Simulated scan of single mutants.
Amino acid sequence: MSISDGFDYVTYGSVCDPVELERFLGHTMTVNDRLVADGRRGTPVCVWGRHGIGKTDIVESVARARGAAFVSIAPAQFEEMGDLLGMPVVVDGGAATAMAPPEWVPREDVPGVLLIDDVNRADDRILRGLMQLLQRYRLASWSLPPRWQIVLTANPDGGDYSVTPMDDAMLTRMLHVTLRFDVKRWAAWAETQGMDPRGIAFVLTYPETVTGVRTTPRSLVQFFERIAALPDLRADLDLVTMLGDACLDSSTVSAFVAFVNNDLDILVTPEEILGARDFAPVAERLAELGGRGGRRVDLLATVCTRVVNHLRQRTTRLDATAVANLRGLLTLEALPADMRLAMAQDLMLLDRSLGATRVLADKAVGRLLLDLAAVPS
């Protein structure tokens, strides 16, 4: 159990980032599949975490990646037990009644995932009604098909969340894990979604603005989708402010306006770094960036992170120009030693078909990295 700062937020299980959560869910689902094949029941998983950080999307993504069918329900919308159990219908010519399951109940005998979203937003009666489903994968009126699994999401107990506490009898029917927001993982995901690069750069530069109140990864996506059609943010700053105020905390909006006015023009994009026929002007801009405001290491870190994320999404092999420019970036004196070493490690982990490791094959680069690694921290 972990308690967050500010409020007495109560969560359960290890705290993990999105990649770790995907691995955990994948492994757990594989084990559950094996248990079912042996005639035993799997165990549901409950993913805890603050609102808007991507719990639901990750669960659905894992299910889709496994080729599983996916059904999501929100028990907070259930008004009565009939929404969970179904409704009685007359059978045998009026001699008896039977329960007709709700329309959402999975019926196909295929691998599937039932997501019970925001489970602790439900009324206490509904929570108690779910207990048999979590333990036996069935209720009095219907059963899940054999190859279906159950995953739940929940907001933390305590603090400012309006949730129904779950007692030990319910908690012990599940495995638990807690998702936290990780800015680098989010930025990598945002690159794959074609998110506005100005928005990605802002979050990387000012991760502290993701407060978790009104400003969440979800509300930031809403904002960035709406500014994407504005080519010149500074020219439309009044509209940008209105769009920000519509979905973000005022402190985040103020930081974004300052970012547009002060930082946006001086950031160097991955495309500029990799494609420059003459790297010297790019190196000068990066050096200026490193010296601006006493040394804007945060902006340099943003540039490096975006370069690595760009390379992860690249499908074509790096040409000689891109390799030479990456070598120039790694040897740039404006970059702190730890940043160069971290970037070198990232390049080593990239797909070999990309050719990124050729950057490190240069003797001068290799010697520099060895010297930097030997310097005591």
Rank of each mutant, 00 (worst) to 15 (best):
S2L: 08
G6P: 08
F7P: 02
Y9F: 14
T11S: 02
T11N: 01
S14N: 11
V15R: 13
E22K: 00
F24A: 14
G26S: 13
M29A: 12
N32Q: 02
D33K: 07
V36S: 08
I58G: 04
A65P: 06
R66S: 04
P88N: 05
D92F: 10
A95M: 03
A95F: 02
W104G: 12
D109L: 09
D109V: 11
G112F: 02
L114H: 03
L115V: 03
D117W: 01
N120F: 01
R128W: 01
R128C: 00
L134E: 00
L144Q: 07
I150S: 00
P156M: 12
Y161F: 15
Y161A: 15
D167T: 01
D168R: 02
T192W: 14
G199K: 01
I200F: 13
A201W: 05
T205G: 15
V210W: 04
G212Q: 00
T216S: 15
S219G: 00
E225K: 15
R226D: 09
R226L: 12
I227W: 04
L230T: 14
P231F: 11
D236L: 09
D238P: 05
D238E: 15
M242V: 13
L248H: 02
V253Q: 00
V253G: 00
F256W: 03
N261C: 10
D263F: 12
L267A: 04
E271V: 09
I273Q: 13
I273F: 13
E288Y: 11
R292L: 09
G293T: 02
R295L: 11
D298V: 03
L299A: 08
L300S: 02
A301S: 13
T305S: 15
T305L: 11
H310W: 07
Q313Y: 13
R314S: 07
L318F: 06
V323L: 06
A324T: 01
R327E: 03
L330D: 04
A337E: 12
M339R: 01
A344M: 10
R352A: 15
G355M: 05
G355K: 05
A373W: 05
A373I: 09
A374H: 10
